[in-house]
Nucleic acid binder design. Sequence first.
DNA 1: GTCTATATAGCGATAGAC
DNA 2: GTCTATCGCTATATAGAC
Lengths: 189, 189
Amino acid sequence: MPRPPLARERVLDAYQSILISDGERAATLEAVAREAGVSKGGLLYHFASKEGLTAGLAARLAALTDEDLERMSGAVDGPIAYYVRTSVMEDDALDRALIAMTRLAQGGSAVASDALREVRDRWAAAIRPHVRDETALDLVMLLSDGLYFNNSLAEPGDEQGGMSDFVPTGVALDRLIDLVVDAATRAPE
Amino acid sequence: MPRPPLARERVLDAYQSILISDGERAATLEAVAREAGVSKGGLLYHFASKEGLTAGLAARLAALTDEDLERMSGAVDGPIAYYVRTSVMEDDALDRALIAMTRLAQGGSAVASDALREVRDRWAAAIRPHVRDETALDLVMLLSDGLYFNNSLAEPGDEQGGMSDFVPTGVALDRLIDLVVDAATRAPE
DNA sequence: GTCTATATAGCGATAGAC
DNA sequence: GTCTATCGCTATATAGAC
Protein backbone atom coordinates (compact mmCIF):
# COMPACT_ATOMS: atom_id res chain seq x y z
CA MET A 1 0.00 0.00 0.00
CA PRO A 2 1.50 3.37 -1.00
CA ARG A 3 1.92 5.86 1.81
CA PRO A 4 -1.18 8.05 2.16
CA PRO A 5 -0.83 11.71 1.19
CA LEU A 6 -0.11 13.92 4.18
CA ALA A 7 -2.81 16.45 3.41
CA ARG A 8 -5.43 13.71 3.49
CA GLU A 9 -4.44 12.70 7.00
CA ARG A 10 -4.33 16.32 8.13
CA VAL A 11 -7.88 16.78 6.87
CA LEU A 12 -9.10 13.75 8.83
CA ASP A 13 -7.32 15.03 11.95
CA ALA A 14 -8.98 18.42 11.54
CA TYR A 15 -12.40 16.85 11.02
CA GLN A 16 -11.97 14.87 14.24
CA SER A 17 -10.77 17.86 16.23
CA ILE A 18 -13.71 20.02 15.30
CA LEU A 19 -16.23 17.22 15.84
CA ILE A 20 -14.81 16.59 19.31
CA SER A 21 -14.46 20.14 20.55
CA ASP A 22 -17.31 21.95 18.78
CA GLY A 23 -19.80 19.30 17.65
CA GLU A 24 -21.16 18.03 14.39
CA ARG A 25 -22.81 21.29 13.47
CA ALA A 26 -19.50 23.15 13.50
CA ALA A 27 -17.67 20.63 11.33
CA THR A 28 -18.37 22.33 8.00
CA LEU A 29 -16.18 21.78 4.97
CA GLU A 30 -14.87 25.32 5.28
CA ALA A 31 -14.02 24.98 8.98
CA VAL A 32 -12.32 21.61 8.43
CA ALA A 33 -10.34 22.98 5.49
CA ARG A 34 -9.18 26.00 7.48
CA GLU A 35 -8.09 23.83 10.44
CA ALA A 36 -6.22 21.51 8.09
CA GLY A 37 -4.55 24.43 6.33
CA VAL A 38 -6.05 23.81 2.92
CA SER A 39 -8.80 25.39 0.88
CA LYS A 40 -12.30 24.01 0.50
CA GLY A 41 -11.46 22.98 -3.05
CA GLY A 42 -8.26 21.31 -1.88
CA LEU A 43 -10.19 19.32 0.69
CA LEU A 44 -12.73 18.21 -1.89
CA TYR A 45 -9.95 16.84 -4.04
CA HIS A 46 -9.16 14.26 -1.36
CA PHE A 47 -12.74 13.58 -0.24
CA ALA A 48 -15.36 14.06 -2.89
CA SER A 49 -18.16 14.84 -0.45
CA LYS A 50 -19.04 15.25 3.20
CA GLU A 51 -20.09 11.63 3.35
CA GLY A 52 -16.75 10.66 1.82
CA LEU A 53 -15.07 12.45 4.69
CA THR A 54 -17.10 10.39 7.16
CA ALA A 55 -16.26 7.20 5.28
CA GLY A 56 -12.58 8.12 5.54
CA LEU A 57 -12.98 8.44 9.29
CA ALA A 58 -14.76 5.08 9.43
CA ALA A 59 -11.83 3.41 7.66
CA ARG A 60 -9.40 4.95 10.13
CA LEU A 61 -11.57 3.80 13.05
CA ALA A 62 -11.65 0.24 11.72
CA ALA A 63 -7.85 0.15 11.41
CA LEU A 64 -7.37 1.53 14.92
CA THR A 65 -9.80 -1.06 16.26
CA ASP A 66 -7.69 -3.83 14.71
CA GLU A 67 -4.70 -2.59 16.66
CA ASP A 68 -6.69 -2.22 19.86
CA LEU A 69 -8.05 -5.77 19.74
CA GLU A 70 -4.50 -6.95 19.27
CA ARG A 71 -3.35 -5.08 22.39
CA MET A 72 -6.42 -6.18 24.33
CA SER A 73 -5.73 -9.86 23.74
CA GLY A 74 -2.29 -9.45 25.25
CA ALA A 75 -3.21 -7.20 28.20
CA VAL A 76 -1.55 -8.34 31.44
CA ASP A 77 -4.56 -7.70 33.70
CA GLY A 78 -7.02 -9.26 31.25
CA PRO A 79 -9.31 -7.98 28.50
CA ILE A 80 -12.08 -6.69 30.79
CA ALA A 81 -9.82 -4.44 32.83
CA TYR A 82 -8.10 -3.31 29.65
CA TYR A 83 -11.40 -2.53 27.97
CA VAL A 84 -12.87 -0.55 30.87
CA ARG A 85 -9.64 1.33 31.54
CA THR A 86 -9.20 2.37 27.93
CA SER A 87 -12.81 3.56 27.80
CA VAL A 88 -11.73 6.57 29.80
CA MET A 89 -10.57 9.04 27.25
CA GLU A 90 -6.81 9.28 27.17
CA ASP A 91 -7.03 11.39 24.07
CA ASP A 92 -5.22 8.80 22.01
CA ALA A 93 -5.88 8.12 18.33
CA LEU A 94 -8.58 5.52 18.91
CA ASP A 95 -10.47 7.60 21.47
CA ARG A 96 -10.55 10.56 19.17
CA ALA A 97 -11.77 8.55 16.19
CA LEU A 98 -14.44 6.92 18.32
CA ILE A 99 -15.78 10.12 19.85
CA ALA A 100 -15.78 11.89 16.51
CA MET A 101 -17.75 9.00 15.02
CA THR A 102 -20.20 9.14 17.92
CA ARG A 103 -20.87 12.79 17.15
CA LEU A 104 -21.61 11.95 13.55
CA ALA A 105 -23.87 9.05 14.51
CA GLN A 106 -25.81 11.25 16.90
CA GLY A 107 -26.10 13.82 14.13
CA GLY A 108 -27.93 11.22 12.06
CA SER A 109 -25.22 9.78 9.78
CA ALA A 110 -26.00 6.21 8.72
CA VAL A 111 -22.37 5.58 7.74
CA ALA A 112 -21.28 6.56 11.23
CA SER A 113 -23.95 4.47 12.99
CA ASP A 114 -22.96 1.40 11.01
CA ALA A 115 -19.26 1.93 11.75
CA LEU A 116 -19.92 2.20 15.49
CA ARG A 117 -22.13 -0.85 15.51
CA GLU A 118 -19.45 -2.92 13.85
CA VAL A 119 -16.73 -1.78 16.24
CA ARG A 120 -18.93 -2.58 19.20
CA ASP A 121 -19.74 -6.02 17.88
CA ARG A 122 -16.07 -6.83 17.50
CA TRP A 123 -15.27 -5.74 21.06
CA ALA A 124 -18.19 -7.73 22.45
CA ALA A 125 -17.01 -10.83 20.61
CA ALA A 126 -13.51 -10.42 22.02
CA ILE A 127 -14.73 -10.02 25.61
CA ARG A 128 -17.46 -12.68 25.61
CA PRO A 129 -15.07 -15.61 26.33
CA HIS A 130 -13.79 -13.84 29.47
CA VAL A 131 -17.07 -13.17 31.31
CA ARG A 132 -19.36 -15.50 33.20
CA ASP A 133 -22.47 -15.02 31.05
CA GLU A 134 -24.36 -12.60 28.80
CA THR A 135 -25.54 -10.53 31.78
CA ALA A 136 -21.95 -9.94 32.79
CA LEU A 137 -21.10 -9.04 29.19
CA ASP A 138 -23.94 -6.48 29.20
CA LEU A 139 -22.53 -4.97 32.38
CA VAL A 140 -19.03 -4.57 30.96
CA MET A 141 -20.15 -3.24 27.59
CA LEU A 142 -22.68 -0.79 29.04
CA LEU A 143 -20.25 0.54 31.63
CA SER A 144 -17.77 1.23 28.86
CA ASP A 145 -20.49 2.93 26.83
CA GLY A 146 -21.28 5.09 29.85
CA LEU A 147 -17.67 6.19 30.08
CA TYR A 148 -17.55 7.07 26.40
CA PHE A 149 -20.89 8.80 26.61
CA ASN A 150 -19.64 11.11 29.32
CA ASN A 151 -16.43 11.77 27.47
CA SER A 152 -18.38 12.68 24.38
CA LEU A 153 -20.70 15.19 26.04
CA ALA A 154 -18.67 18.29 25.48
CA GLU A 155 -19.17 21.86 26.37
CA PRO A 156 -18.81 23.68 23.07
CA GLY A 157 -15.38 25.23 23.05
CA ASP A 158 -14.08 22.76 25.61
CA GLU A 159 -10.78 21.65 24.10
CA GLN A 160 -10.76 18.37 26.01
CA GLY A 161 -14.38 17.74 25.23
CA GLY A 162 -16.08 16.02 28.11
CA MET A 163 -18.15 16.04 31.26
CA SER A 164 -14.97 14.96 32.97
CA ASP A 165 -16.39 15.48 36.49
CA PHE A 166 -18.41 12.31 36.09
CA VAL A 167 -15.63 10.12 34.83
CA PRO A 168 -13.51 8.45 37.50
CA THR A 169 -9.74 8.56 37.05
CA GLY A 170 -6.69 7.39 38.96
CA VAL A 171 -7.47 5.42 42.11
CA ALA A 172 -11.25 5.79 41.63
CA LEU A 173 -10.94 4.18 38.22
CA ASP A 174 -8.84 1.32 39.61
CA ARG A 175 -11.51 0.64 42.21
CA LEU A 176 -14.26 0.70 39.59
CA ILE A 177 -12.33 -1.76 37.43
CA ASP A 178 -11.84 -4.13 40.39
CA LEU A 179 -15.54 -3.91 41.14
CA VAL A 180 -16.69 -4.67 37.61
CA VAL A 181 -14.13 -7.41 36.95
CA ASP A 182 -15.22 -9.09 40.15
CA ALA A 183 -18.92 -8.74 39.33
CA ALA A 184 -18.43 -10.04 35.79
CA THR A 185 -16.24 -13.07 36.54
CA ARG A 186 -17.18 -14.23 40.04
CA ALA A 187 -18.91 -17.62 40.08
CA PRO A 188 -22.68 -17.35 40.61
CA GLU A 189 -23.69 -17.97 44.23
CA MET B 1 -49.87 29.29 36.80
CA PRO B 2 -52.10 29.77 33.74
CA ARG B 3 -52.47 26.74 31.51
CA PRO B 4 -49.79 26.71 28.80
CA PRO B 5 -50.94 27.42 25.24
CA LEU B 6 -51.54 24.20 23.33
CA ALA B 7 -49.55 25.25 20.28
CA ARG B 8 -46.48 25.82 22.42
CA GLU B 9 -46.58 22.27 23.77
CA ARG B 10 -47.20 20.84 20.31
CA VAL B 11 -44.11 22.66 19.06
CA LEU B 12 -41.97 21.17 21.85
CA ASP B 13 -43.37 17.71 21.11
CA ALA B 14 -42.52 18.11 17.44
CA TYR B 15 -39.01 19.33 18.24
CA GLN B 16 -38.45 16.25 20.40
CA SER B 17 -39.83 13.84 17.82
CA ILE B 18 -37.60 15.08 15.05
CA LEU B 19 -34.51 15.20 17.27
CA ILE B 20 -35.11 11.60 18.36
CA SER B 21 -35.92 10.04 15.01
CA ASP B 22 -33.87 12.11 12.58
CA GLY B 23 -31.17 13.86 14.59
CA GLU B 24 -30.20 17.41 15.40
CA ARG B 25 -29.43 18.34 11.85
CA ALA B 26 -32.97 17.57 10.72
CA ALA B 27 -34.65 19.61 13.46
CA THR B 28 -34.93 22.85 11.51
CA LEU B 29 -37.49 25.51 12.36
CA GLU B 30 -39.38 24.66 9.20
CA ALA B 31 -39.45 20.92 9.89
CA VAL B 32 -40.53 21.48 13.50
CA ALA B 33 -43.23 23.93 12.45
CA ARG B 34 -44.58 21.52 9.84
CA GLU B 35 -44.65 18.60 12.31
CA ALA B 36 -46.43 20.80 14.87
CA GLY B 37 -48.95 22.00 12.30
CA VAL B 38 -48.01 25.66 12.46
CA SER B 39 -46.05 28.00 10.23
CA LYS B 40 -42.49 29.09 10.80
CA GLY B 41 -43.72 32.50 11.85
CA GLY B 42 -46.22 30.94 14.22
CA LEU B 43 -43.49 28.90 15.86
CA LEU B 44 -41.29 31.95 16.30
CA TYR B 45 -44.06 33.75 18.13
CA HIS B 46 -43.82 31.17 20.94
CA PHE B 47 -40.05 30.70 20.88
CA ALA B 48 -38.10 33.73 19.75
CA SER B 49 -35.12 31.71 18.48
CA LYS B 50 -33.71 28.24 18.05
CA GLU B 51 -31.94 28.56 21.39
CA GLY B 52 -35.24 29.58 22.95
CA LEU B 53 -36.70 26.34 21.68
CA THR B 54 -33.89 24.42 23.36
CA ALA B 55 -34.42 26.38 26.58
CA GLY B 56 -38.10 25.43 26.45
CA LEU B 57 -37.10 21.79 26.22
CA ALA B 58 -34.69 22.23 29.14
CA ALA B 59 -37.50 23.61 31.31
CA ARG B 60 -39.69 20.64 30.41
CA LEU B 61 -36.84 18.24 31.23
CA ALA B 62 -36.32 19.85 34.63
CA ALA B 63 -40.02 19.51 35.48
CA LEU B 64 -40.10 15.86 34.39
CA THR B 65 -36.99 15.18 36.48
CA ASP B 66 -38.78 16.56 39.55
CA GLU B 67 -41.54 14.03 39.04
CA ASP B 68 -39.08 11.21 38.43
CA LEU B 69 -37.11 11.88 41.61
CA GLU B 70 -40.41 11.81 43.46
CA ARG B 71 -41.28 8.38 42.03
CA MET B 72 -37.74 7.10 42.57
CA SER B 73 -37.80 7.88 46.27
CA GLY B 74 -40.91 5.75 46.65
CA ALA B 75 -39.91 2.83 44.41
CA VAL B 76 -40.66 -0.55 46.02
CA ASP B 77 -37.45 -2.27 44.90
CA GLY B 78 -35.27 0.70 45.80
CA PRO B 79 -33.83 3.71 43.96
CA ILE B 80 -30.97 1.84 42.26
CA ALA B 81 -33.17 -0.78 40.61
CA TYR B 82 -35.65 1.94 39.69
CA TYR B 83 -32.95 4.11 38.17
CA VAL B 84 -31.35 1.37 36.08
CA ARG B 85 -34.67 -0.05 34.93
CA THR B 86 -36.01 3.32 33.82
CA SER B 87 -32.77 3.99 31.91
CA VAL B 88 -34.00 1.59 29.28
CA MET B 89 -36.11 3.66 26.99
CA GLU B 90 -39.79 3.09 27.51
CA ASP B 91 -40.58 5.99 25.26
CA ASP B 92 -42.22 7.91 28.09
CA ALA B 93 -42.17 11.69 28.45
CA LEU B 94 -38.95 11.82 30.46
CA ASP B 95 -37.06 9.46 28.15
CA ARG B 96 -38.02 11.49 25.13
CA ALA B 97 -36.99 14.79 26.70
CA LEU B 98 -33.70 13.30 27.82
CA ILE B 99 -32.76 11.77 24.49
CA ALA B 100 -33.75 14.90 22.60
CA MET B 101 -31.56 16.93 24.94
CA THR B 102 -28.67 14.50 24.43
CA ARG B 103 -28.92 15.05 20.69
CA LEU B 104 -28.70 18.79 21.18
CA ALA B 105 -25.77 18.49 23.57
CA GLN B 106 -23.89 16.30 21.12
CA GLY B 107 -24.64 18.84 18.41
CA GLY B 108 -22.77 21.42 20.45
CA SER B 109 -25.49 23.30 22.36
CA ALA B 110 -24.23 24.78 25.61
CA VAL B 111 -27.77 25.18 26.96
CA ALA B 112 -28.37 21.46 26.40
CA SER B 113 -25.06 20.38 27.96
CA ASP B 114 -25.79 22.41 31.08
CA ALA B 115 -29.30 21.01 31.36
CA LEU B 116 -28.02 17.42 31.16
CA ARG B 117 -25.30 18.05 33.67
CA GLU B 118 -27.80 19.42 36.17
CA VAL B 119 -30.19 16.51 35.74
CA ARG B 120 -27.36 14.05 36.23
CA ASP B 121 -26.18 15.81 39.38
CA ARG B 122 -29.65 15.60 40.88
CA TRP B 123 -29.95 11.89 40.17
CA ALA B 124 -26.49 11.19 41.58
CA ALA B 125 -27.39 13.07 44.77
CA ALA B 126 -30.59 11.03 45.15
CA ILE B 127 -28.81 7.69 44.70
CA ARG B 128 -25.67 8.40 46.74
CA PRO B 129 -27.30 7.56 50.14
CA HIS B 130 -28.25 4.10 48.85
CA VAL B 131 -24.87 2.82 47.65
CA ARG B 132 -21.85 1.59 49.57
CA ASP B 133 -19.36 4.21 48.35
CA GLU B 134 -18.44 6.52 45.47
CA THR B 135 -17.11 3.64 43.38
CA ALA B 136 -20.49 1.95 43.56
CA LEU B 137 -22.16 5.25 42.66
CA ASP B 138 -19.92 5.51 39.59
CA LEU B 139 -20.93 2.00 38.56
CA VAL B 140 -24.66 2.72 38.79
CA MET B 141 -24.48 6.11 37.08
CA LEU B 142 -22.21 4.92 34.26
CA LEU B 143 -24.30 1.83 33.59
CA SER B 144 -27.35 4.02 33.27
CA ASP B 145 -25.45 6.35 30.96
CA GLY B 146 -24.50 3.36 28.84
CA LEU B 147 -28.13 2.37 28.49
CA TYR B 148 -29.13 5.88 27.47
CA PHE B 149 -26.20 6.15 25.13
CA ASN B 150 -27.30 3.07 23.23
CA ASN B 151 -30.87 4.24 23.12
CA SER B 152 -29.77 7.56 21.71
CA LEU B 153 -27.70 6.16 18.84
CA ALA B 154 -30.33 6.12 16.15
CA GLU B 155 -30.27 5.00 12.61
CA PRO B 156 -31.67 7.95 10.68
CA GLY B 157 -35.29 7.21 9.91
CA ASP B 158 -35.52 4.69 12.73
CA GLU B 159 -38.80 5.61 14.41
CA GLN B 160 -37.78 4.05 17.72
CA GLY B 161 -34.32 5.55 17.54
CA GLY B 162 -31.81 3.20 19.06
CA MET B 163 -29.23 0.46 18.78
CA SER B 164 -31.76 -1.67 20.60
CA ASP B 165 -29.82 -4.91 19.97
CA PHE B 166 -27.34 -3.85 22.62
CA VAL B 167 -29.86 -2.95 25.28
CA PRO B 168 -31.08 -5.82 27.44
CA THR B 169 -34.82 -6.08 28.08
CA GLY B 170 -37.16 -8.41 29.92
CA VAL B 171 -35.42 -11.17 31.86
CA ALA B 172 -31.95 -10.06 30.71
CA LEU B 173 -32.63 -6.63 32.18
CA ASP B 174 -33.85 -8.13 35.46
CA ARG B 175 -30.63 -10.12 35.75
CA LEU B 176 -28.52 -7.07 35.01
CA ILE B 177 -30.34 -5.09 37.69
CA ASP B 178 -29.80 -7.87 40.26
CA LEU B 179 -26.12 -7.93 39.37
CA VAL B 180 -25.58 -4.19 39.70
CA VAL B 181 -27.68 -3.78 42.85
CA ASP B 182 -25.67 -6.56 44.45
CA ALA B 183 -22.34 -5.11 43.32
CA ALA B 184 -23.26 -1.62 44.52
CA THR B 185 -24.68 -2.48 47.96
CA ARG B 186 -22.87 -5.64 49.10
CA ALA B 187 -20.57 -5.07 52.07
CA PRO B 188 -16.88 -4.92 51.08
CA GLU B 189 -15.11 -8.24 51.66
C1' DG C 1 -51.67 34.36 17.71
C1' DT C 2 -50.83 33.01 13.32
C1' DC C 3 -49.85 33.85 8.70
C1' DT C 4 -46.90 35.11 4.09
C1' DA C 5 -43.05 37.22 2.25
C1' DT C 6 -38.49 38.38 2.43
C1' DA C 7 -33.76 39.61 4.09
C1' DT C 8 -29.31 37.71 5.13
C1' DA C 9 -25.97 34.41 5.70
C1' DG C 10 -23.74 30.08 5.31
C1' DC C 11 -23.78 25.42 3.54
C1' DG C 12 -22.11 21.62 0.18
C1' DA C 13 -20.55 21.16 -4.25
C1' DT C 14 -18.86 22.47 -9.17
C1' DA C 15 -15.83 24.76 -12.69
C1' DG C 16 -11.83 25.90 -14.27
C1' DA C 17 -7.17 28.37 -13.65
C1' DC C 18 -2.58 27.32 -12.20
C1' DG D 1 -2.78 18.73 -6.06
C1' DT D 2 -4.31 22.96 -4.72
C1' DC D 3 -6.35 27.24 -5.56
C1' DT D 4 -10.36 31.05 -6.35
C1' DA D 5 -14.84 32.03 -7.82
C1' DT D 6 -19.35 31.02 -7.95
C1' DC D 7 -23.79 28.39 -8.21
C1' DG D 8 -27.97 26.64 -6.01
C1' DC D 9 -29.98 25.59 -1.89
C1' DT D 10 -31.50 25.91 2.75
C1' DA D 11 -31.10 27.80 7.36
C1' DT D 12 -32.41 31.35 10.91
C1' DA D 13 -34.68 35.36 11.66
C1' DT D 14 -37.43 39.74 10.61
C1' DA D 15 -41.42 42.61 8.89
C1' DG D 16 -45.74 43.41 8.58
C1' DA D 17 -50.65 41.87 7.06
C1' DC D 18 -54.65 39.68 9.02
